[in-house]
Design a binder for these strands. Structure first.
Lengths: 249, 249
DNA sequence: GGGCTACTTGCATATACACGCAAGTTTTGG
DNA sequence: CCAAAACTTGCGTGTATATGCAAGTAGCCC
């Protein structure tokens, strides 16, 4: 049995039963425990399963366990959210994506703000919903469990039928040559549609992701109106983006 | 059973029941008391639960100041949810409304269940989303802040384009003459659409609401296939509904 | 304060794991 | 087509982890 074949079989078993035992696998495929362990390790490194003592679990198993307080680089994201709030004005229609930065933004929106927020991100909607003066429009479709936003043609066609004042996206990678890029095909389609349906585009990202790239392009650098990071606007890292005509906060 | 799996089970139980007894767990999972204690200790260290003499409590429970009445009706709703789960089968398409009873249902869905849940209730979607094998379809539209579900023509037209196997609704009032009734115009429109788009209708309610009425009618008693309360089916309160041809659980 | 239950600590055992190595297999590059 | 290189796999060794048991301690309820 080939390695790839074996790993495919393991993945199949994990997705089927939500768990596998190393001993079961090695017995069933007739290879040594070591081989199975090495396979599990590789699969775990690429995020396809979660390795635990004695076997492995499906990644969806562990998903719900992350509490909101353990957000990666929380302080930085809070700074970004504060800056982004200044762009939001009364009466605006605002399309937003998902991600922890957007959720921080939702949490720091001033309570007297009257605006309409449109999103397919369930966690973001949850936050918007608790604000007293914000109207929330939900983009419906099937939920992508990884990103917790709705994705699909229905969602895209809903977004296309809108025209928002602002599109605020948390982004995963940006550089000068390829613009904004991401690694989830379905999410990228949604982001593209949101950008096309908005007058202005605001991108939020921690500086760590500046000058990085992911496989799928979302949009060119020219599309961006405002870029917000936790750094001050005169940081040398951001200079090329200012030269490219982007407002940097 | 793997350690992680066991701990996930314990957490699930704690979040479900708000408390667990070490002895119950060790008996149920078939491991020694020591193992359970060690698990509880680990989970307590990472803040996922609060360990007390003899068992553990949910972290939300401790600083949550729930009145005894709330807890009382909470237990009833859990009984209802448990009964409702028995109607859900693999591969089904299920339309659900919102409300605390529906959320309880979402929490007790068995993890190996494969089904598609369609809803406009944000809290319900949140729960469905955390289940490993459930596909979630979101009904988009504007959020009604009172009920935390999406309402409006867009939502209704989306629902009309579906045909689900089951419609599960938490209801606010029911009597023999006027059937199911409610007090929020927009929510009633959604419920009506959901009922029309499903092969079968299941209504969940605590017995307190049996034989009561609200201003706006949702549907006639004849539309209901199954009625679930926390009472045993042979309770005299439910007799007239059985006579009207409804399956009572 | 007595009796019960739960808890702590230390220890024994079984299993799982990491690491290095050697043999076999596949790929690469003349 | 052959040989070097890279990869894959299984085994032996030592270590780490998980679990249950036993004995003593602490906490709870009357």
């Amino acid at each position: 049995m080939l390695k790839r074949e074996r790993q495919a079989y393991i993945l199949h078993q994990v997705n089927l039963h939500n768990k596998v035992l190393s001993a079961d696998l090695s017995h069933h495929i007739n290879v040594s425990d070591d081989t199975i362990r090495r396979d599990l390790q590789e699969l775990a490194e690429s995020g396809k399963l979660i390795k635990v003592h004695g076997g492995a679990l499906s990644p969806s198993f562990h998903h719900g366990n992350q509490s909101s307080r353990e957000i990666y680089s929380y302080t930085q994201k809070k700074i970004i959210a504060q800056k982004a709030v200044s762009l939001v004005q009364d009466g605006m229609f605002i399309l937003t994506g998902g991600g922890t930065t957007i959720i921080e933004l939702a949490r720091v929106l001033p309570s007297q703000l009257h605006a309409t927020f449109i999103s397919g991100s369930i966690p973001a909607i949850y936050e918007y919903m608790n604000h007293p003066n914000i109207d929330v429009i939900v983009i419906g479709d099937k939920i992508s469990k990884n990103s917790k936003i709705t994705v699909g043609l229905e969602a895209i066609s809903r977004i296309r039928s809108l025209r928002a004042d602002l599109c605020i996206l948390g982004i995963n990678a940006i550089n000068l040559e390829n613009g904004v890029s991401d690694n989830d095909w379905e999410v990228v389609q949604i982001k593209k549609a949101m950008i096309e349906s908005s007058k202005k585009l605001v991108c939020l990202t921690i500086s760590e992701k500046i000058n990085s790239q992911q496989p799928i392009q979302v949009c060119d650098i020219q599309k961006i109106d405002t870029l917000i990071t936790e750094l001050p606007p005169d940081d040398p890292l951001l200079e090329p983006y200012i030269k490219a005509g982007i407002t940097v906060l």
